[in-house]
Each structure stands twice: as structure tokens, then as C-alpha cells.
């Protein structure tokens, strides 16, 4: 059963001023338990608006968001509990740190949930372990940490609420490839530990292909495509028309296939492309 579902969401900003924009237009999709979904689109495509709607920060002008089959706006207590069940981690989350120690900052969410001291301690240690933040750092001020550690600390603050749906807005923005792999690693380990659904906003097709089971492509407030990674990459030309590029390796394989080489089309990383071509060459020479 779908853990989160949207039904025909629409939303606009700044009505009645010259800056009026339609941010979302009739967006419907579902995300299953344990699934990883990437939301792709470039700046202004409505991704961030959509994410803020999923945990009830923004109210849609029309349409509804359903968590576990129940409208998140159905009653006040439920709307508040949705904040904790759908964990939203904003872009550059390290800019939202504020407490004296990392421990207190990670504990902010669980404390707001009204949990007991013992449970809070358990959750903070668990979240810190998932994001790979050494225990020695927990009593330090978050402002003394390095950039990467700050981000881990901030993500731990969301994970500590143990959300059933974890939403991350560009979690790898401004990180080097290694930092990116680390973040992806911790998302996976959180998912394995809790069976949570993960929604990750990105504009990198490589990232989406690496991590996601399914990709949602947003364009000008509309849901342009919704399908598995291989389904989406078959629409290379349409994607390019809306300004999104498929990974270079996928493109190379597609070009080679057009030239008559018998290669598998489902290749998204450089390593896989290299292996595929090597295997093909071996087949040919034999």
C-alpha cells in the first residue's frame, strides 16, 4: 500500500501581483513503503513547493496529500503528527543549526515530539550512528564542525524523528563526490533500518539513477514523467527538450546501440558502461 499519495495538487504564489506564478499544476503520484523516489527538475519547476506540501507546511489550493490513506489536513492533531512522520530536510540544512551542542540540536525534533529523556537519548545516538557522526562530537558546538560534519548533524536531526517518509532536498548540494557517496550511504542504511520511503530532490540524473527505484520529472509545475529509471531514460530527447540531460554514459550506450552494437540499454554509471562495452568487445572477438 502507498505510504504517501498526492491527488491533483495545485498551487500558485503571489496572486494579484506582477510576480504571480503557478508553482504546481495537477500533480498526482504515489510512493510505496521502502521505495526510493527521485524528483528531478530544474530551478522553478515546483519541486520544493511540492516537498513542502508533503509534510503540510504548505496547503494546496486544490487537491490533497494522503499519508497512509488519510488526508493530512483532516484534523489538527493529525496534521501536527504528519510533521514528524514525514521528515523534511531542506537544502543546505547546516544553515539551520542553532543549539549549543550537536546533541541538543539533533534532539530538537524528538523533544518537540514529546518523547521521554531516555528515548531521546536512544534516538540521538542511533541517528548519529547512521550519519556517521562520532560520539565525541556530540557534545561540541555545531558551529565548530567542518562543513560535511555540519550537514551530517543536520540530517541526523531529521532522522532522529524516525520519519516513515524521509524527504531530502538536494542533500548533496555543494559536496564533493566522496561526500555525496557518504550521504547516499547513510540514506540507504536508514532505509534498511526502518523500511522508510525516501524521496530525494535533485537535478542530477546520475544521482537519481544511482539511488532511485523510480524517477518523477517535474517541468513548469507539472509532472512530466513518472517511471522507473530505465523507462525515464528512454525519453532522452524529451528530457533534453525540457533542459535535463541523461547521464553521459547512458547517452554513449544509446549512441552505440544506434550504430548497431548489441548492448543493454539499462546503463547509468561510467563503470557499468565500461563493463558493458568490454563484455561486448569480448563477445565480438570470440
Amino acid at each position: 500500500m502507498a505510504i504517501i499519495e498526492t491527488r491533483r495538487l495545485s498551487f500558485g504564489y503571489s496572486h494579484g501581483t506582477p510576480f504571480e506564478i503557478t508553482a504546481l499544476d495537477d500533480v498526482s503520484f504515489t510512493v510505496e513503503k521502502g521505495e526510493t523516489v527521485a524528483v528531478i527538475g530544474h530551478t522553478g519547476s515546483g519541486k520544493s513547493t511540492l516537498m513542502q506540501m508533503l509534510n503540510g507546511l504548505l496547503t494546496p489550493e486544490s487537491g490533497a496529500v494522503l499519508l497512509d490513506g488519510k488526508d493530512i489536513r483532516s484534523d489538527k492533531a493529525f496534521t501536527r503528527s504528519v510533521r514528524f512522520r514525514v521528515g523534511l530536510c531542506f537544502q543546505y540544512p547546516e544553515y539551520q543549526l542553532f543549539e549549543e551542542t550537536c546533541y541538543k540540536d539533533i534532539a530538537f525534533g524528538p523533544k518537540n515530539m514529546g518523547l521521554g529523556e531516555e528515548e531521546i537519548r536512544r534516538r540521538v545516538t542511533e541517528a548519529a550512528a547512521i550519519v556517521g557522526l562520532p560520539e565525541a562530537l556530540l557534545q561540541r558546538s555545531p558551529f565548530e564542525l567542518s562543513g560535511g560534519q555540519k550537514r551530517r548533524c543536520a540530517i541526523a536531526g531529521v532522522i532522529a524523528m524516525r520519519p516513515e517518509v524521509l524527504i531530502l532536498d538536494e542533500p548533496t548540494a555543494g559536496l564533493d563526490p566522496r561526500g555525496r557517496d557518504d550521504i547516499f550511504g547513510m540514506i540507504r542504511s536508514y532505509q534498511q533500518a526502518t523500511e522508510a520511503a525516501v524521496i530525494i530532490v535533485t537535478h542530477s540524473m546520475e544521482d537519481a539513477a544511482m539511488l532511485a527505484d523510480r524517477i518523477l520529472v517535474m517541468n513548469r509545475g507539472k509532472l512530466a514523467f513518472n517511471g522507473t529509471v530505465s523507462e525515464i531514460f528512454r525519453h532522452a530527447e524529451e528530457l533534453e527538450a525540457i533542459g535535463l540531460n541523461i547521464p553521459a554514459s547512458t547517452k554513449l550506450i544509446a549512441d552505440l546501440r544506434r550504430a548497431g552494437c548489441e548492448l543493454s540499454p539499462d546503463v547509468y554509471t561510467a563503470q557499468a558502461a565500461a563493463d558493458e562495452i568490454e563484455a561486448y568487445l569480448r563477445r565480438k572477438t570470440v
Binding site: R83, F90, Q91, Y95, M113, M161
Partner: peptide
């Protein structure tokens, strides 16, 4: 920036 921070802290249950 203020709007983002408010939204982010609300997401962690700030009342």
C-alpha cells in the same frame, strides 16, 4: 532565508 529557516524548524516540530 527567514522563511526557509521557519519552514525547516517547523518541519522538526517547532511550535
Amino acid at each position: 532565508e527567514l522563511n526557509i529557516i521557519i519552514s525547516a524548524q517547523k518541519s522538526r516540530g517547532a511550535d
